[in-house]
Computed example of a mutant assay.
Amino acid sequence: MKNAIRFVALGDSFTEGVGDIDLRLPNNCRGWADRVAEELARHDDRARYANLAIRGRRLRRIVDEQLAPALAMKPTLVSFYAGGNDLLMARLNLAKLMRDYEDAVQRITSSGATVLLFTGYNVPLSPLLEPLKVRTAIYNRHVRRVAEKYGTLLVDYWCFEKFQDPRMWAPDRLHMSSPGHSYMARKVLEVLGARHSLQSPRLGAPRPRSRVENIADDVAWLRRDVGPWFSRRLRGVSSGDLLGARWPELMPVVLPERLGTAKAQVPQLSSRFS
């Protein structure tokens, strides 16, 4: 009999599920990793899932806090996305970041688990943050090299044209929206070669927006999301400092149709910039 899947997800807000709001779940979000686990469980009720990702985590903390607990679970599948928050730092040693990234991937692959890596996406934040595009391109080049070197699976997020639609993004413009997370789950399952029932989101044609609407939206975004994010950076704190992992231990997958409508009793914290 084929061994049951033990799926452990590691990382930051991308993997935690920020932007895909579900008040019934820990940290008030669902996300692509939950959606992938749900589809795996629908075809094998022996599947088990843990999600150790926490918003705001940089690579070093992800490795220090999540890697050993994950490997202790003897996973058969590990998703690893890390480094996105490091790319947002004013000062960054990108060469060291990628050395640390490769060391982490080597440790995971040495466990015998199937490893799933991700490139980053050029999120259309603002012309002021255009230098991030260069960093992300360099990061992606290294991720592709590491994936090839260690024989991991790769979700090449950078290439997904669907994410050019702003409706695939949450209002903070940095995290995926619910349609974005659903589409990401579908692409992950395709890379895994797993059966699933997820459909590509049908968003229709976007409503034309006036220049005034665009300016008003930009002003609201700067006040609501960018300002508090810069404030946290200056104070050396993160939106994930008071949160724990959503699913810290391997457990049977919680299917959404069995959740009911009760709101989860979890800490309330902004799900905006990590």
Rank of each mutant, 00 (worst) to 15 (best):
N140V: 09
F163L: 12
A245F: 08
K2W: 06
A41W: 01
A216V: 06
I108V: 10
N51T: 00
G227R: 10
R258G: 14
S126C: 13
T114H: 03
R6C: 12
V8H: 01
A41S: 15
L243A: 10
A90K: 14
R42S: 13
A33T: 09
D156Q: 03
D241A: 13
R209N: 00
A137Q: 08
L234M: 15
R30M: 00
P75Q: 07
G11V: 00
I138P: 12
L203I: 02
Y49R: 11
G240I: 02
P179C: 01
P256H: 03
G193W: 07
A245Y: 07
R99C: 03
Q268Y: 11
S238P: 15
G180W: 03
L189D: 03
Y157L: 14
R233P: 11
T109C: 15
N93T: 01
D225Q: 03
A220R: 10
G31M: 12
L154R: 03
A262D: 07
M89K: 04
V105Y: 05
D44G: 11
L94P: 13
V253R: 13
S13A: 14
Q106G: 15
A95E: 14
R55P: 08
D45I: 01
R60L: 09
K162S: 11
V191W: 02
W247T: 12
A72R: 13
R144S: 00
H142S: 11
G236P: 15
Q106S: 15
V63F: 11
E257Y: 11
D225V: 00
R224I: 02
P171R: 13
R246Y: 00
P201G: 05
L52G: 12
A68K: 13
R209D: 02
S197C: 11
A170C: 09
S13T: 05
C159N: 07
D20H: 08
P208I: 14
R99V: 05
I5N: 09
I21M: 14
E257I: 01
R141V: 04
S79G: 08
